[in-house]
Every structure is written in C-alpha cells, then in structure tokens.
Simulated scan of single mutants.
Amino acid sequence: MKVLVMSDSHGLTDEISIIAERHKHEVVSMIHCGDSELMKEDPLMMEWTAVRGNCDRDMTYPNDIVEEIADQKFLITHGHLYNVKMTLLSISYRSEETDAKIICFGHSHAAGSELIDGRLYVNPGSIRQPRGRKEKTYAILDIINQQVNVTFYDITGKVVEELNNTYQIS
C-alpha cells in the first residue's frame, strides 16, 4: 500500500493539485505535514490528512494526528512543536508514547528519511522552498508488511534516486 507525504507547500495550489492528481490512483492516503497555508475547508485540502504548521493560520488543523494507515500506526505532525530542526529526540518521545512506527513531519524543509530504534522518520522536504537540495520534493511510502520503500520525487514527478531507501520497521 502506498502513502503520499508532502509538507511545506506555503500557499501553492496548482502544485498540490497536480501532485494529488498524478498519484491519487496509486495511493491509499495523502498526508500533508503542515504549512500548506490553506484553510482546512479549502476543497484542495479535503483529500489530505493534514496538520497545522507554524505558518498555518487555520486553528482547526490538529497539531498531531495518530492514525492507522496501510496497517501501520503513523504519527503526523509539522515538527515545530518538537524542535525537529535541532533534534529528533522530542518527536521520538512522542512516537514512543503513541506507539507510532512511521513518523511524518516537515518544518525544516530538508528531505530525508531514517530508521531509529525500529521507527521510520520521514521528512518529505518542501515543494516550495527546499533546504539542503535544489529539488522541490515530496515522498511516497510503499508499505509491504514491515518493509517500507521510501521514494522521493521532485515537483515534476521525477524520482530523486539518491534520497530513496528501503527500511525494515519493527
């Protein structure tokens, strides 16, 4: 089962629509990790499981969502409340509290993924203002039992090979 993960679109609308349309028939869920800067009731956001980022004015978005998706427990957050620009320690405590195995967050605009103590942390980067790379990115997680293939794409849908990885979560 595949899950699309995006973050930090900062007001973009056409790009969100194009990416959703590109992948909606292959994914079971679409996650936005905050800073969409769109209202929750915006028709564009209706298809997304979305959280509130530090630049989102709409207070009806939750700060965190813990949800079962593709037979795995996800923690979805923006990351600013967990200081993810400095460390993953606070967000790792929250993932332990919720027993989440896949943690999706944004805020830093830096695309990447890593496995820590059997939990997978994924930051899809930003489709508006990437940091640390030139590509504007999002990710798709292909979950097969306990194996997760993380594939990053640039905004045009081209695979960003050097960011991709396969993980075994526990």
Rank of each mutant, 00 (worst) to 15 (best):
R57T: 11
D35H: 09
E47R: 15
S126T: 01
V51S: 00
I69F: 07
H80S: 08
Y93C: 03
V160Y: 06
Y153H: 03
N165C: 08
S92K: 09
V66I: 11
G34T: 09
L75M: 04
K158M: 04
R22E: 10
D99Q: 13
N164T: 07
D99V: 07
Y61G: 09
R22S: 12
G125V: 00
E15Q: 10
R22D: 10
D117C: 05
R94K: 05
A70M: 04
I91F: 04
G118T: 02
A20D: 13
G132K: 01
K158W: 03
E47S: 15
S170Q: 10
L12K: 07
D8Y: 00
D14P: 09
A50D: 12
R119G: 12
L141R: 01
V150K: 00
N149P: 05
K158D: 10
S7P: 09
C55Y: 06
G34A: 10
C55P: 07
I103K: 04
I91W: 06
G34L: 03
G125T: 00
V84F: 02
C33Y: 02
Y82K: 15
G106I: 01
I155L: 06
R52N: 09
I31L: 13
K2S: 15
D142P: 03
I102G: 07
K101C: 12
F105D: 04
N164K: 04
I69S: 14
Y153E: 06
I76N: 04
K136A: 02
H32Y: 14
E47K: 15
F74L: 13
V5P: 06
Y167Q: 07
L12N: 09
H23T: 15
K40M: 15
P62H: 00
S95K: 04
R133Y: 03
G125L: 00
C33W: 00
C55T: 14
E162I: 12
E96S: 02
D42P: 14
D154M: 02
